[in-house]
Design a protein around this nucleic acid. Structure first.
Length: 567
RNA sequence: CGGGGUGUAGCUCAGUAUGGUUAGAGUACUUGGUUUGGGACCAAGGGGCCGAAGGUUCGAGUCCUUUCACCCCGACCA
């Protein structure tokens, strides 16, 4: 492509609504333009990057025997009624009517559609397993779209669904897909981690997220210093503590603790480690038709992990409560302890099971109990894992130490089981001629989000630093002075040679000054820029490596061979 | 959905407290000339319903009401 003919509207200044580097550079370098909140136009450069990602996905899906389909974007709301997800998705589902007043939604994901496609068409175990996928625009009417392509309302996603006769076969496919996904991200050239995840309200056993590591990631993930363990903080587990602080010795007793309300104050008051205190977090948990206040107890050194709390209570939502509400039902904020079991439901972190030498609220203004042994609650209380892991905790799989890092979720795979096939009555006949619901897996990968994630992980102050597998063009040839005939001649010759060799090459033949073209090239992020300029007088040109920004001098006779070698 | 903020040229932003010539700058764009290794310089141009609607006033970008859009924090996010 000749730069003089290319539609690449670069800008010196970013639109002021861009905050993340990926958003700023993709906008400035002429990849995307915003249309409305969470909606973007992809311009030629972005389109090329997207196609490269899609090609790699297609190749790897082909390799594992998944078949590509494309389902209609507009989907009848009746399917969503069948699965019961109309309410679950709520306002994120963009609903509208056609001229005949029929209700439709813009597909935010395609479980229902895919099950509908397969049901009554695949009817025998002999035709299983089956893995179908598509790469398609999705629409979710997010409450708050942000971060450019990272969290748009309209986005491109690869979504795949597998159908199996047995759980064992699903497990096999799940592992195969994990390997395929790892291979895709490796080929794209990004630094990533596969982590254990919460499977969300939809349920399912195995759930793994593929995270591109980047500081601006929205997810916090815990990773082990020694082994491969990694998990989303929402699902992270930990091993037994390596060092347990010295226990405060005391017999069971009620102690006057005037105005000592917080864990910090309590630990200071008794001169003890917060490990031996019990923290109470009161929340209102919301179910489909009702809600109630539940008290969650964790060690004073821990925090409540709300997603875990949600799973422990099987609730739809968890919201804050204020102190007045607590007083109304006879609780004393600041002094609530787990020994009083009859007012509201309690959930106690498993780490507190049979704990001894504890200090906790006495459910009475200005009093705490000391020397508490929770063994007495073993049979009456509900214990569940609700504490959030901390940095420095021990890995659940080895003796390494957990630390936190930020990640961008670009893939999520999990085992659906038969939730959808049962809801939509999608069945096959097994070996005994008995109808069985399909056992399913689902495999998502955010294509447009990957575009942003790649830049988020690969950029510097000047612009994008595309990986070789994702760069819109591999080589950019700058003719420093378009009026210099020798420069033009060599540029054109090289351009032709590289094109013939199948190299994706851009020829910057604009009537601009050198600095302008160079800045532009660095903003866009071509892996290699060949500079035909003043060194030509010495029979040489330069190759600028975009990763290192180093320039090397190459004699003109070697330039073609040299660049072909670098690619 | 709660809290906050911003809407003026393609982009970045002045101008609005205290209403008063023809609404400005930088950048980008067009033309001519000079320049040609790090977003050049000179000259001349084009480009605006001051987000929208209503109101107050002799007069509104500026004051009042309504509304829409976008951004940020939070909630939400199979």
């Amino acid at each position: 492509m000749r730069r003089s003919r290319a539609f690449i509207p670069t800008m010196k200044e970013a639109p002021n609504d861009a905050s993340l580097p990926s958003h700023i550079f993709l906008a400035r370098a002429g990849f995307i333009s915003q249309v409305a909140a969470g909606l973007y136009n992809y311009m030629p450069l972005a389109k090329r990057v997207i196609r490269k990602i899609e090609n790699i996905i297609n190749e790897e899906m082909e390799a594992v025997g998944a078949q590509e389909v494309e389902l209609s974007f507009v989907t009848p709301v009746s399917l969503w009624m069948e699965s019961g997800r109309v309410e679950k998705f709520g306002k994120e589902l963009l609903r509208f009517k056609d001229r005949k007043e029929n209700l439709f939604v813009l597909g935010p994901t395609h479980e229902e559609m895919m099950v509908d496609l397969v049901r009554n068409r695949v009817t025998s175990y002999r035709n299983l397993p089956l893995n179908l996928y598509q790469i398609k625009t999705k629409f979710r009417d997010e409450a708050r779209p942000r971060f450019g392509l990272m969290r748009g309302r309209e986005f491109i996603m690869k979504d795949g669904y597998s159908f199996h006769a047995t759980i064992e076969d699903l497990d096999r496919e799940f592992d195969a897909m994990e390997r395929a996904y790892k291979k895709i991200l490796t080929r794209l050239g990004v630094d990533f981690r596969v982590v254990e995840a919460d499977s969300g309200a939809i349920g399912g056993s195995g759930s793994k997220e593929l995270m591109v590591l980047a500081d601006s990631g929205e997810d916090t993930i815990a990773v082990c210093s020694k082994c491969e363990y990694g998990a989303n903080i929402e699902a992270a587990k930990r091993g037994a503590r390596a060092v347990i602080p010295e226990a405060p010795e005391a017999n069971f007793n009620k102690f006057l603790t005037s105005n000592v309300k917080t864990i910090d104050e309590l630990a200071e008051f008794f001169k003890i480690d917060p490990y031996y205190t019990i923290k109470c977090i009161a929340k209102r948990v919301v179910y489909e038709d009702e809600s109630e206040i539940v008290l969650f107890f964790v060690r004073g050194c821990d925090n409540l992990q709300e997603v875990k709390a949600l799973n422990a209570t099987d609730a739809l939502d968890i919201v804050d409560v204020d102190e007045d509400e607590l007083r109304e039902i006879g609780l004393t904020p600041g002094f609530i302890g787990p020994l009083d079991q009859d007012k509201v439901k309690h959930v106690i972190d498993t780490d507190l099971k049979d704990a001894t030498n504890m200090i906790c609220g006495a459910n009475e203004q200005d009093y705490h109990f000391v020397g508490v042994a929770l063994g007495v609650l073993s049979d009456v209380a509900y214990f569940a894992e609700i504490a959030e892991v901390n940095e420095g905790d021990i890995c659940p799989n080895c003796d390494g130490v957990l630390s936190f890092t930020k990640g961008i979720e670009v893939g999520h795979i999990f085992k659906l089981g038969s939730a959808y096939s049962e809801a939509l009555k999608a069945e096959f006949l097994d070996e005994n001629g008995k109808p069985q619901p399909f056992i399913m897996g689902t495999y998502g990968m955010g294509v447009s989000r990957l575009v942003a994630a790649i830049v988020e992980q690969n950029h510097d102050k000047k612009g994008c630093r595309w990986t070789k597998a994702t760069a819109p063009y591999m080589v950019n040839i700058i003719i420093s002075n378009i009026k210099n005939e020798a420069q033009v001649e060599l540029g054109e010759k090289l351009y032709g040679q590289l094109q013939e060799s199948g190299v994706e090459v851009m020829l910057d033949d604009r009537k601009e000054r050198f600095g302008f073209k160079m800045k532009d090239a660095e903003l866009i992020g071509f892996p290699y820029t060949i500079i035909i300029g003043k060194e030509l007088a010495n029979g040489a040109v330069q190759i600028c490596d975009n990763q290192t920004t180093k320039k090397i001098l190459v004699p003109i006779d070697n330039i073609y061979a040299q660049i072909m070698e670098l690619l």
